[in-house]
């Protein structure tokens, strides 16, 4: 996603990126970054929580209005209201994604090879 933000900003359109990983966005040197400490998949908050969603949207337009130069960042001061361990489990898919499954298989194969050599 930082790639899209950069391409579109370079075309002359002002962008603001609302992200759960503002440190990563900063590594891509994006123009305007709004950080939220929310689980993945929930950049604007909980379903049907209009106040939370609205607060994040307002942070985005505030940064569009006020950022004086590139690499501006604004972190939203809202704590996720669900216990961390529950939220951590809940955002993840029911099955491991293909790349995660692929990496697990590869690790197991390498471990099997290592054990067969010893």
């Amino acid at each position: 996603m930082p790639v899209l933000a950069r391409v579109i900003e370079e075309s002359g359109i002002s962008t603001v990126t609302v992200t759960m990983m503002p440190d990563l966005a900063a590594k891509f040197r994006l123009s305007r970054i709004v950080g939220v400490e929310f689980p993945f998949g929930h950049a604007f908050g909980l379903p049907n929580d209009l106040r939370m969603q609205r607060a994040v949207c307002e942070a985005a337009i505030k940064l569009l209005d006020e950022a004086a130069g590139p690499e501006s960042r604004l972190d939203v001061d809202i704590e996720w209201p669900i216990e961390s361990a529950v939220a951590y489990r809940d955002w993840q898919p029911a099955e491991p994604s293909p790349i995660v499954a692929y990496n697990i298989q590869r690790r197991q194969a390498l471990e099997g090879e290592r054990q067969s050599r010893t």
């Binding site: 579109i8 359109i13 002002s14 962008t15 990126t17 609302v18 992200t19 759960m20 993945f40 950049a43």
Partner: peptide
């Protein structure tokens, strides 16, 4: 005619 884009990684 868009002049500002709000992007959100999931």
């Amino acid at each position: 005619g868009v002049s500002a884009l709000v992007l959100a990684p999931a």
